[in-house]
Amino acid sequence: MTLVRRYGLTVAALIGAGFVFVVPFLFIVLTAVKDRTQAAQLDFTWPTSFPLWENFWTVISTRDFMLITAYINSTILTVGSITLLVILAAMVGYVRQRRKAWWNGLVDFLVLAGLMMPPAVVPTIWLLQQLGLFATLHGMIFIEVAYNISFCIILYRAFVATIPREMDEAAIIDGARPMDIFFRVILPMLKPVTITVIVVQSVAIFNDFVNPLYYLPGNDNVTVQLTLYNFQSQFNTSYNLLFMNILLVTIPPLIVFLFFNRQIVAGMTSGAVKG
């Protein structure tokens, strides 16, 4: 009786959460290893046969190994965007927190606007075309940076506020020039936020479906999420291959998350810098 009272709610919550998170994942895994006919029924049954390797190879090799191209593109996109995001957002957050200037209000407004205003697709495409950046990978990198930088700036700025100004001054006395102060003293101290930004944003950008769909047309530019269309069309969908594809696309971010889990939590919660 007391056991139920003490753990009842916890167990119920765990079961609920497990249901919501694990069942869909199990469904993906099961469907991915079924053969085509059984998968088409879309039910929660044990596979009758396991054409695992066959499904895997088909997904990889379809359309001239499009998934491989997609992996390369997505990786370039993610790494490029994250690098720019970290450096730019940390710089802006640092300068905005440290320097008192009359245009601070304007900067804050723009940052918040970037966070709140919905992106306007058609004008953006027009602008990209004028700049010659439409349907290029670096154009896409700029788009991802622009869409995500506001959030990162806010994260960085809050963290910089917890770093005592004496750190900057000690570096100045030691002879550091502004770039030295930022790259050698401040940026390393921002590591917890940087890890948070890297993980959260890389998952978001790697998994981004909508923006590459708008801004990155063309078979050479395909990103991993767009490969899902390979096995899905109006009249003919191979659910086993579709789910195998989903599985292959989901696993890398999952590994990143599991690997950095502890640091992410630390980065989101810690503020104080132990000196």
């Binding site: 004496e166 001054e169 000690a170 100045i172 030691d174 550091a176 003293v185 390393p188 590591k191 000196g275």
Partner: peptide
């Protein structure tokens, strides 16, 4: 500039660089 004044300063909160070893802290300048 402070670095050209021939001065060194010790702060109340010490302001050591937390990500560097003592050796690197001392040698940073």
């Amino acid at each position: 500039e402070p670095r050209d004044r021939g001065i060194a300063m010790v702060f109340q909160s010490y302001a050591l660089y937390p990500h560097m070893t003592v050796y690197d802290n001392v040698g940073f300048g």
